[in-house]
Amino acid sequence: MGLTYKRILVAVDGSQEANWAFQKSIEICKRNNASLVISHVIDTRTFATVEAYDRTVAERAEKYAKQLMDEYKFRASQAGITEVTTVVSYGSPKVKIAKDIAPRHNVDLIICGATGLNAVERFFIGSVSEHMTRYAKCDVLVVRTDKD
């Protein structure tokens, strides 16, 4: 078994942390000559708070996800990554990526940003990155920003 990665998944949500993770994924893809899966999960729990499930909220989230994917895909191809797949999914990001998207795309490395939760939030809901490291069947790289 080689020490190179063939298929790398980067989880993006539009945050600065995710952007750092994306940039790191480009570097690692190039070093390993790997293909890239860019994934964004629309967190359906945010819709639950809306009174009568407002359709426009979902539509805005979908539109945003598409713009995000188009932008990241363009940046990846500009950087010379030839095989890029984008995946938009619905549900809980931390569950979807580790247990569904990564296995379905035969990913051998997941890259994500360190999320900015405070200690109390992390205690109650657990961070996305923490959950991925626990449940993913492959390696997980949590990228820290220079702020840390």
Rank of each mutant, 00 (worst) to 15 (best):
K147D: 09
T4L: 11
Y64I: 01
S92D: 15
A136M: 05
V143E: 06
F22C: 05
Q78G: 00
G80R: 02
F47L: 15
T46Y: 05
K99L: 07
S89D: 15
T145H: 10
D70L: 10
C29V: 08
A52Q: 12
D139F: 07
R122M: 11
G113T: 05
V88G: 00
A119L: 07
V12A: 07
A65K: 00
R122E: 15
R45P: 00
A48F: 13
Q16L: 09
E62Q: 12
T49D: 10
S92W: 05
A136F: 06
P103N: 01
L117P: 00
K66D: 07
G2M: 09
R104G: 03
I111A: 03
E71M: 12
K66W: 02
V88Y: 01
G2V: 06
I42D: 01
H131P: 01
H40V: 04
K6Y: 04
N19H: 09
L68Q: 03
R104Y: 01
S89W: 05
A65P: 03
S127C: 02
A76P: 13
I8R: 09
H105F: 13
Q67E: 11
K66S: 03
E27I: 12
V50A: 15
Y135M: 12
T4Q: 12
G14Q: 04
L3Y: 10
A119M: 05
V143G: 00
N32E: 08
A79W: 04
R45W: 03
D100A: 03
Q78W: 01
R144T: 00
A21S: 06
T86L: 02
I110A: 07
L141H: 04
S25A: 15
L109S: 07
A98W: 01
S89Q: 02
R31V: 06
R60K: 14
L9E: 11
K24N: 08
Q78M: 13
I110Y: 06
C112H: 06
T86E: 08
K99E: 13
L68T: 03
V50L: 15
H131F: 12
L9S: 09
D54Q: 12
N33A: 10
D139S: 15
E59F: 12
K94R: 14
K96T: 14
Y90I: 03
C29K: 08
R144K: 13
T86H: 00
S77V: 11
I81G: 03
M69A: 11
V57T: 12
S39P: 02
A136Y: 05
A102Q: 05
A119V: 07
I38H: 05
F22D: 02
D13C: 08
A61I: 03
V95S: 10
T86P: 00
V142L: 04
Y53G: 14
G14T: 04
V140D: 06
V41A: 08
A58H: 07
E71Q: 14
R7Y: 03
S35N: 05
K6G: 14
F22Q: 04
D54G: 07
L9F: 08
R7G: 00
A136C: 05
L109I: 09
F47M: 15
T44K: 09
